[in-house]
Design a protein around this nucleic acid. Structure first.
Lengths: 337, 337
DNA sequence: CTGAAAGCGCTAACAT
DNA sequence: ATGTTAGCGCTTTCAG
C-alpha cells in the first residue's frame, strides 16, 4: 500500500517550499514571478511521481468542493436519467462532479438530502423540486448557494429555473386530437400540485373549453409499485366507456396506461386514441406507435448547467434569477390518426 | 448568511471541552464515562442551534468519507438506472452516499473516474468494469479499498463480483427457440470481450451446437448515436433473409433491433421470432410482446451492496473474494411462439 | 521569488 | 470524567 504523497513530500524532494509548489500547482506561478525553470521542474516531478493534491483538504481550506448536487424525482425514470446523464457530462467537462439522488417527490426525504448536500459542502444545487421545500431552498439561497430548478419550479422560491412550455404543449396536443375528430378526451396523470402538472392539466382544459368540450380528469396517486398505478387506470378505463381518446400526463403514466390498454384488448386508435407527455422507446415501438410530446432533453440539460456554471463563476452577479421556458415537439404517430 | 457553527463554538457556549463534545456526538460518551446529564445538555444544545459537524473536516481527519463510488456503463440505460436506484436507497439507509458516473465502457474515461473517486476518498467502489482497467482496480485493492464488480468481472482482478448466469441464460433461451421449431437463429449484440458478453455468445453457440445448428453472429460496435446501431442491424437483417429467429444480446440492441424490424415491416414471430436479453417496458408493450431474459435486478443490487457493506464494516476480514452468480428468468411471450 | 506559520473543523492520543 | 494538544493536507497572508 503505497503511501499517499502530500505537498510537503513534493516540496522536500525538490528542496523548495511547499508554498511555491502550491502556487505552481494552482497556476499562480506567473503572478508570483516564479522562474519558468522551477515551474517546469516541479511540474515534471509531480507528473513523474503521480502526485495528486488531496481535494478534501483543499475543500476544507477553500470552502469549495467542486461538487454539484443533483436531485431528480427518480433516476430510474428515463426522462430524468437522460437529463442526469447530459448534466453529468457537461459538469465533468467543467471540472465539477455530480452527487445525485432521487427525491421520490418526498418532501421529508428531500429535506434530508438537502441537508446532506449542504453538509458535504456542494457548490451548487440542481433540483426538480417537490412541494413543501420552499423554506429549505430559500435558506440555501440566502446563504448564497447557487440553486437551479428544472422540470418545474416553486413560485415562492426566487431562483433560476428551466422548464418547458407545459400549458401550450398539452393545449396544442389536445387541439390536435380535437382536430382529428375526437370529442371525449380524458386526461390521466399523477396527482400533483406541482407547476408543471398544473399547467399540463390547464392546457388540456383550455383546449377543450375553447371547443365547448368537457374535461374528464383522472388523477393517480404515485406509487413505486406499478400495480397500484395500473389498477386505477384500468378501473377508470372500464368505467368510462364513452371515451374516444386519452391523454397521459407523463411517460410513466403513459407506459402503465399502455399496459392496461393492451391487456384490455383495446384497439388504438380505433377504440381509443392515445397521446402521452414525454417521448421514449416504448411509445415509438408500441403496437400502434404513440403520439407524444417530446421534451428537448438536450436543451434542458444545457440550459440548466449553463445557468449553474454561470452562477458558480460569477458569485457576485446579483442579476435577477430568471426562468427559461423551452418548446416541446408534438410527434404525431398512428395512435392519434 | 448565518455563520456556520463549529464544534468549538458549541464547546465554548457550553463551557466544556470540544473533545467532550466530539465524544458525545460520536456516541462514545458511555465508553468515556461522560455523565448522562452532560450528554443530555450537549445533545439538546446541538439540536437547538442546529449544529452539523463539518463532514469534510471529519473525512480529512478520519480518512473516511462515507461515500461510495458507483460506476455503471450508462446511467440512462434502464437496467443500470434501476440498479443504481436500488443501490442508492440501500446505501443511504446505511449512512452512505453515492457518487455515480457513467463509464461509457471507455477505458480512458474510467481510469480518470477512478482517480477522481480516489481523490475524493470514497470508501468503496462498485463498478461494471470495462476492459483494460485491471491494473487500476488491482492497485485499488492493494491499497485496501473495497471493490465490488457487477454485471461482469475481470478475471485478472481478485475482487468480489455479482453476476448472473449469462451462459445458461442464453443457452436455455436458445433451446427454447429450437424447441419451438426455429432453426436459423442469429445472435446480434455489441462487440465486446467482456465476460458477460462472451458468456452470452457462448451459451447461444452451445445450444446450437447441441442440436447441430450453425451460429450466425453479428457484432455491432457500440455508439452513442443510435443510428449507427440501427444501420448495421438493418443491413444485417436485409442480407440474411434465411433467418427465422433473432436473439438480441442486450436491451439496447434489442430496442434498436425492434425499431428496424418495425420499419422493415417484418412480422413477429411469423417472419422472424425474437428474444432479447434484459426485460423492460418496450419488450412487454411491443406489437408482439417480446420474449426476454429478465435479470433479477433487486437481487443484484442487494447482493452488491451487502457485499460492499460487509467489506466496509470488516476491513480486516481477509476472507477470499467471491463471485455471486444469480439466476435469470426467461419470460416467454408471443414473439417466440 | 521563497519560507514560516496560521488556520479550515475535526478526532484521538495523552494527560490530568 | 474532561481537557490539551497535535495533526489530517492544503492555501494564503506576511516577511523576508
Amino acid at each position: 500500500m503505497k503511501k499517499k504523497l502530500s505537498i510537503v513530500d513534493i516540496a522536500q524532494s525538490l528542496n523548495v517550499s511547499k508554498t511555491t509548489v502550491s502556487f505552481i500547482l494552482n497556476g499562480r506561478a506567473q503572478e508570483k514571478r516564479i522562474s519558468p525553470e522551477l515551474v517546469e521542474r516541479v511540474l515534471k516531478y509531480v507528473e513523474e511521481v503521480g502526485y495528486k493534491p488531496n481535494s478534501l483538504a483543499k475543500s476544507l481550506r477553500t470552502g469549495k468542493s467542486n461538487i454539484i448536487g443533483l436531485m431528480v424525482e427518480d433516476i430510474s425514470n428515463p426522462f430524468f436519467a437522460s437529463i442526469a446523464r447530459l448534466i453529468e457530462d457537461r459538469a465533468y467537462k467543467n471540472g465539477y462532479k455530480i452527487i445525485y439522488c432521487s427525491t421520490d417527490n418526498d418532501t421529508g426525504k428531500t429535506k434530508d438530502l438537502i441537508n446532506m448536500f449542504r453538509d458535504r459542502h456542494v457548490d451548487g444545487y440542481i433540483i426538480a423540486p417537490p412541494e413543501g421545500i420552499e423554506d429549505d431552498l430559500n435558506s440555501l439561497i440566502k446563504d448564497g448557494m447557487p440553486v437551479v430548478m428544472f422540470d418545474r419550479h416553486l413560485p415562492q422560491v426566487n431562483a433560476d429555473y428551466v422548464e418547458i412550455d407545459n400549458l401550450f404543449s398539452t393545449y396544442n396536443a389536445t387541439l390536435h386530437l380535437i382536430d382529428k375528430g375526437y370529442k371525449n378526451i380524458a386526461f390521466i396523470t399523477f396527482a400533483s400540485r406541482q407547476t408543471q402538472m398544473v399547467a399540463r392539466v390547464q392546457g388540456y382544459k383550455d383546449a377543450l373549453a375553447s371547443k365547448g368540450l368537457t374535461p374528464v380528469i383522472k388523477e393517480i396517486v404515485f406509487n413505486q409499485d406499478e400495480d397500484l398505478i395500473i389498477g386505477p387506470i384500468e378501473s377508470f378505463l372500464k368505467e368510462h366507456t364513452g371515451l374516444d381518446a386519452v391523454f397521459f400526463g407523463t411517460n410513466h403514466v403513459g407506459a402503465c396506461g399502455l399496459k392496461v390498454i393492451s391487456s384490455l384488448g383495446i384497439k388504438v386508435p380505433e377504440d381509443l386514441a392515445v397521446i402521452s407527455f414525454d417521448d421514449y422507446d416504448v411509445f415509438k415501438l408500441y403496437k400502434t406507435p404513440v403520439t407524444a410530446i417530446a421534451q428537448p432533453i438536450i436543451d434542458i440539460a444545457d440550459n440548466v448547467i449553463t445557468v449553474l456554471l454561470n452562477k458558480l463563476n460569477n458569485p457576485l452577479s446579483a442579476n435577477k434569477p430568471q426562468g427559461v421556458i423551452l418548446k416541446t415537439e408534438l410527434r404525431i404517430r398512428d395512435s392519434s390518426k
